[in-house]
């Protein structure tokens, strides 16, 4: 091999090595940070893992929001009109959080079947229903309103 080719080979090897390391790290990191979505039915039936970061979503049950007197602790229930799951959260709820509103929460399921949320998301439009929630409701055949026309229009 002449020196020029040799040099090129080194460069190519360097790039291949770099790409391999990058791809390996990327896939590893991706694997560590995937948050799967579970509907209240799936959670109630024990399909969701405990002590792993997951996402859960549904409609906030009317009259279920209970605030603590002296702190920002809050409990509420979410439902897909089939099963209901209790959610515990400490902190400020988003502007669009309301009873009867679709939300997605991020957090872990504890041993008692209560969802310990670290983040609650309600998106920026009052007609908006999180896509996961809409799909879960449709699957359960429980889409509210005239065939869901009011949402996501």
């Amino acid at each position: 091999m002449n020196p020029k080719r040799k040099k090129r080979l080194y460069i190519v090897l360097f790039i291949v090595f770099g790409v391999a390391v990058a791809v390996g790290l990327t896939l590893f990191a991706l694997n560590q940070n995937i948050n799967l979505f579970y509907s209240p039915t799936q959670i109630a039936e024990g399909e969701a893992p405990t002590d792993t970061r997951i996402r859960a979503g549904g409609m906030v049950v009317d009259g279920s929001v209970k605030r603590a007197e002296d702190s920002l602790e809050v409990m509420f229930e979410i439902t897909d009109y089939e099963k209901t799951v209790s959610v515990h959260y400490s902190g400020i709820l988003p502007d669009l959080f309301r009873e009867g509103q679709g939300i997605v929460a991020q957090g872990e399921l504890d041993g008692q079947g209560v969802f310990q949320a670290v983040e609650v998301l309600a998106k920026h439009d009052e007609n908006y229903m999180p896509a996961e929630v809409a799909e879960a409701l449709e699957k359960a055949g429980k889409m509210p309103m005239p065939s869901g026309q009011e949402f996501n229009k």
Partner: peptide, 14 residues
């Protein structure tokens, strides 16, 4: 194959 989201830690880690 399900609904999932990729969290910020993935992006930060890389």
């Amino acid at each position: 194959m399900g609904k999932l989201s990729v969290g910020p830690p993935y992006f930060n880690a890389l």
